[in-house]
């Protein structure tokens, strides 16, 4: 009886604790309901906002000034668009939330994969460009095995040192 009780207690604690510790991707809520598709359809390229993907490790997120380049004056009647100008009035950057994240012990360079390796953005980021509202979690959740599979397929190094820092 006692054993069953204790077992139950431990089980509850373990599952609950495990959930708290390992809660994988809580919902990501963006400050503005950004519509990727509209922007792509209007002829913008990924690099228009994620400016540095071709030159650096981090692709980067758009600065407010980048948004204002088009949205200084209203293009639509969307209240979401209005938020951009509200941030501008307050003199704040838009606090975009990070959707795709890297473990701290991994080194990943966008330039290396996209420019030098010729990998399409979609390979890792999925159809984000076709999304009409900000997804709350990444469409593709990459594991190390996914990295390795691709590396093997393309015959590039699988040396741990190449990515682990």
């Amino acid at each position: 009886m006692n054993r069953i009780l204790l077992f139950t207690v431990i089980l509850v604690l373990a599952v609950g604790g495990g959930y708290l510790v390992a809660r994988p991707f809580s919902e990501v809520v963006q400050p503005i309901a950004f519509n990727h598709k509209v922007h792509i359809d209007n002829g913008l390229d990924c690099s228009a906002c994620h400016e540095r993907y071709s030159q650096a490790a981090v692709a980067g997120r758009p600065k407010l000034t980048t948004c204002l380049f088009c949205h200084e004056t209203p293009l639509t009647e969307s209240p979401e668009e209005e938020k951009v100008r509200q941030y501008a009035e307050r003199g704040e950057e838009i606090p975009w939330r990070r959707l795709t994240r890297l473990p701290a012990h991994v080194y990943f360079s966008h330039r290396r994969h996209v420019v030098l390796g010729g990998i399409a953005c979609q390979t890792c980021h999925g159809h984000i460009g076709q999304s009409t509202s900000p997804p709350s979690r990444p469409e593709i959740q990459l594991k190390m095995n996914d990295c390795l599979a691709c590396h093997r397929q393309h015959g590039v190094t699988t040396d741990c040192n190449a990515c682990h820092r």
């Binding site: 990501v28 939330r97 994240r101 959740q141």
Partner: peptide
């Protein structure tokens, strides 16, 4: 899914 994640969303 227990991926160690380095940075917070922000």
């Amino acid at each position: 899914k227990l991926t160690p994640v380095g940075q917070a969303y922000t």
